[in-house]
Amino acid sequence: MHPFLICATCSEPSAIMCAASPILSLQHVHYHWQGRASFALDIPEFAVDPSESVLLLGESGSGKSTLLSLICGTITARSGSVVVAGTDIVSLSAGKRDRFRAEQIGLIFQQFNLLPYASVLDNILLPLRFAPLRRARVPSPRDTARMLCLNLGLPEDAITAQAGTLSVGQQQRVAAARALIGAPPLIIADEPTSALDAATQTTFLDLLFAQTRACGSTLLMVSHDARLAEHFDRVVQLSDVTLPQQTAA
């Protein structure tokens, strides 16, 4: 009945799950912004299986960002459960949720993803600073970061460059490397290609897919662009998983 039961062979509930249980599962989630009854988000059920690549399509203003914030735990659902890699993050304290996010989720944003004044290397290593378990999975962070950069097609000398000096396309690759380092079970990308031109988009997606697969991670991408659908295992319309918005009570 519960598809996210913890597998008996896994010693740690927060470790990567067995293939049977979903990596992400939302059940009866209800959220509304404080003091704004007109906007609410209701998701009866939404799940993503491990190693799956899912494209979540939705127009802007349809609650994509709210959904991502719910999954990442920077906001909490009023009711229901948000289970990421076997842990219901709704029940975690704010501090534990931050730590959990660092450990389990790699994030790529639309644009301005990086600390512009820091080096590419420091940008890539940043999440490890807040995630000791993820850090422990990377025996040699510098080498891994260099490897990821190489695999994502960044030039050799980019790693020491200041992140702000790179082109937007290169910056997105660095952001991808940062999300992938330490192989978090879930990679979430929020319109990562919207700032890129068509040719760069495809290259970027191909590289991202290859690396996500190599890390054994699950990819959940949010976008409004239906043309990206062909790259994904599954495409979900956001309007299909959310209940129609209720008018103000």
Partner: peptide, 16 residues
């Protein structure tokens, strides 16, 4: 604000 949001997204707690 964006810089701080990046830190938060990477798992930094507000006290960081």
């Amino acid at each position: 604000r964006r810089e701080m949001a990046i830190f938060r997204a990477m798992g930094a707690r507000p006290r960081v």
